[in-house]
C-alpha cells in the first residue's frame, strides 16, 4: 500500500465559478489553456510551413521570374497593410493587459478596435486583389496550358501604368485584350510559355498564402467578437482572463505570418523606385 495514498481533498469543494470541474486550481486551468493555444499555433506554423516550403523551392528554381512577378504587386499597399496589422497587434496587447487588470470595458473596446484594424487590412487587400484580377494575375482555369497571353497582358498593363504615372496622371486604362493577343510574337513562344508558367507559380503562391492568411483573419474576427461580447458582460477578471490572452496569442500569430509574407512576396528585387 506504499505506492498510492489518498488525499483528503475531494473534487467539487470550494470551486471558483470559472474553474471547470476537471481542474484543481485556476492556475492549472490557465496553464493548460495557454499551453493548448501554443500547441495549436505550432500546428499552424506547420500548416503554413507547407506553403512556405513550396515557395522556397520555386523561388530558388525560378528566382529571376519571381523577382519580376513580385514587381507587379503594389508595395505601398503592402506596406500600409503591414503597419495596420502591427497597430492591431498593439491594440490586442492592450486588450489583454486590460483584462489582466480587470478593466472589462476597455478590454471589450480594444478588442473591437482590433477587429476594426483587421477590417481595414482586408479592405486594402480587397482593392489589391481586384486590381490583380483586372490585370490578369489571378490564376484560374483560363490561365492554364498555353494561354500565356495573361502574363503578357499583365506586363503591358504595368507599362501603361508607368507611362500614365510619368505623365503625372493618376488615371490609366487597361490594355485591350485583343491588342495583347495580336502582339504575340510566335518566336517568343517557348520562352513566353516558360515565363508565364513561372510567373503564374508566383501568383498562385501569392494568392494561396494571402487568402489563407485572410481566412485566419476572418476566423479571428468571429472569435474576437465573441470574446469582446463576454468581456462587456464582465466575464473576465484578474483571476480568469485566459480566453483573452489566447485570442491575443492567435492574433499575434496571424500578424507574424504577414510579417513574413510581406517581404517574401512584395520586396523581391527591391522595386522601391518603380
Amino acid at each position: 500500500m506504499s505506492a498510492i495514498k489518498e488525499t483528503v481533498q475531494d473534487h467539487g469543494q470550494h470551486h471558483h465559478k470559472d474553474l471547470a470541474h476537471h481542474f484543481d486550481t485556476l492556475e492549472q486551468q490557465h496553464d493548460a489553456n495557454t499551453l493548448g493555444m501554443w500547441a495549436f499555433l505550432l500546428t499552424e506554423v506547420l500548416f503554413f510551413g507547407g506553403l512556405f516550403a513550396a515557395y522556397t523551392i520555386y523561388r530558388y528554381k525560378y528566382s529571376a521570374m519571381f523577382e519580376e512577378a513580385s514587381n507587379h504587386l503594389d508595395i505601398k499597399l503592402g506596406a500600409t497593410n503591414t503597419v495596420i496589422l502591427i497597430l492591431s497587434s498593439l491594440t490586442m496587447a492592450l486588450a489583454v493587459r486590460c483584462s489582466q487588470t480587470g478593466n472589462s470595458l476597455w478590454t471589450g473596446r480594444w478588442l473591437l478596435i482590433t477587429i476594426a484594424f483587421g477590417l481595414m487590412f482586408l479592405g486594402v487587400k480587397y482593392f489589391e486583389w481586384k486590381h490583380d484580377y483586372h490585370i490578369h494575375l489571378m490564376p484560374g482555369k483560363d490561365w492554364s496550358g498555353k494561354d500565356w497571353w495573361h502574363w503578357q497582358y499583365a506586363k503591358k498593363a504595368k507599362d501603361m501604368e508607368k507611362e500614365a504615372h510619368s505623365k503625372g496622371s493618376a488615371e490609366h486604362s487597361f490594355p485591350d485584350r485583343k491588342d495583347v493577343l495580336a502582339d504575340n510574337d510566335p518566336s517568343l513562344g517557348v520562352r513566353g510559355i516558360q515565363e508565364s508558367q513561372q510567373a503564374r507559380l508566383f501568383f498562385l503562391l501569392y494568392f494561396c498564402m494571402t487568402s489563407l492568411h485572410a481566412l485566419h483573419m476572418l476566423v479571428g474576427f468571429v472569435l474576437i467578437g465573441i470574446i469582446a461580447y463576454f468581456a462587456y458582460q464582465g466575464a473576465y477578471s484578474p483571476d480568469y482572463y485566459s480566453p483573452v490572452e489566447n485570442i491575443g496569442l492567435y492574433w499575434h500569430f496571424v500578424d507574424i505570418v504577414w510579417i513574413f509574407l510581406f517581404p517574401l512576396l512584395y520586396l523581391l528585387g527591391a522595386h522601391m523606385g518603380h
Binding site: A54, P139, G140, K141, S144, R200, L204
Partner: peptide, 13 residues
C-alpha cells in the same frame, strides 16, 4: 483551377 504547382507540364514539380 488547372494551375501547375505539382504538374511539370505547367512548370510545377
Amino acid at each position: 483551377l488547372g494551375v501547375g504547382i505539382f504538374d511539370p507540364r505547367l512548370g510545377g514539380d
